[in-house]
Simulated scan of single mutants.
Amino acid sequence: MSDELSLSSKVTLNNGQKMPVEGLGVWKATLHEASFAVETAIKDGYLLIDTAKQYGNEAGVGDGIRKGLAATGKKREDLFITTKVFNGDQGYQKTLDNFQGSLDRLGLDYLDLYLIHWPVDGLYKETWQALEKLYSEGKVKSIGVSNFDQEHMDDLLQDATVTPAVDQIEFNPLLQQEEMRDYAKKIDMKIEAWSPLGGGQALNDPKLKKIADQYGKSVAQVILRWDLQSNIITIPKSVHAQRIEQNADIYDFELSDDDMGAISLLNQNKRSLWYQDFDWHTPHKQNAYHDEVDQWPDAKDFPVDYKK
């Protein structure tokens, strides 16, 4: 498998579109950090970039895309760009009304993947209808969901005419979501891992450290390689150039069946600590999209420590 996989490898979604197996996540990144990280990632060969309106950094991501394309000579169609419907924008008409804003901030004329960020009760089915409309009009190449469990999916599919191509969920060695993965296989939907390193908790596991030492790799690299060999799309987040490069250095080794099995035994159904305390389901206050993007045209160069 190590000979077959590379940073440019892609999987085929249920609508025939090709999606890279690894990308860059930018949750919690500022505008400056997001721009630098995205530009760096594109220079390093990343093709998949994942953001969300909720992150408040779409404009920074767009700036990084432009700089990365200019630096590498790549074209827009070489990249796979994902963003997500903000909780406060959910509902049929509100989703349609606010979609263009994400495109404008990103500086794009289409998205490769548009996700419902969370299944907001009473709204996510209407939101999905809006995504189906955007998909039918060619404004997005693929549509999917994020943080949907089997109950939400069963409800959504009762009225959906398009099966979600992707469900982006929290996934790491301590939270392996086996039931959701099995469900996704049955309906031909890909699983994409957010927080693949378990919010940093998995990095301290001694069994993972022992496996990593055997391969001369870091624990993070072993986890990301495990994702790929588990047929999981992975989007590790970093704003540091060295870590972005290291996260992509996972294609020159292959985990043995024994090591894959050992990692599978680490599951604790344990969500990240920050996740438990964060009010993701309130579409306002700390989750609200902020106006920092309006200041982007006047933004200055990055602080030096962002580049370390």
Rank of each mutant, 00 (worst) to 15 (best):
T40W: 08
I116K: 00
D104L: 01
K207Y: 04
D104N: 15
E170P: 14
L197K: 09
T72Y: 03
K10G: 03
P283C: 01
L208P: 04
K217R: 14
A41K: 04
N204R: 09
K67D: 05
L273G: 09
E126P: 01
H284W: 07
T12E: 03
L131T: 03
Y215W: 04
K94A: 08
T82D: 14
I250P: 10
S136R: 13
D277M: 13
S6V: 04
K28M: 10
L134D: 11
M260I: 12
G68C: 04
L203K: 08
F80Y: 13
Y289I: 14
Q246H: 05
D257Y: 00
D50M: 12
K28L: 14
E132V: 03
L265W: 02
L203N: 08
L111C: 14
Q150M: 14
K43W: 03
V162I: 15
N15P: 09
K217L: 02
D155G: 15
E77N: 13
L273T: 13
V61C: 04
L123A: 11
L48S: 07
T83G: 07
S230V: 06
Y275P: 06
V222R: 08
A52W: 00
G144H: 06
L103V: 05
Q54S: 11
E77Y: 05
D301N: 10
W280M: 15
Q177Y: 11
K237T: 15
P303I: 05
H284Q: 13
F36D: 12
A41M: 01
S9W: 04
H117W: 03
V120N: 13
N87S: 10
I244F: 00
L113F: 00
L265K: 12
E178F: 11
T72K: 09
S102A: 07
E33L: 10
L48F: 11
E22Q: 15
L48N: 11
K141N: 05
D188F: 05
T282C: 05
G45R: 04
G68W: 02
A248G: 15
W280V: 14
D167K: 08
D227I: 11
Q276E: 15
Q100L: 09
L156T: 02
D97S: 11
T163G: 14
S238D: 11
I232G: 10
V222T: 13
Q158A: 09
L69C: 03
L96D: 09
G60L: 07
G138M: 03
K43H: 02
S8A: 13
L224R: 13
E245R: 14
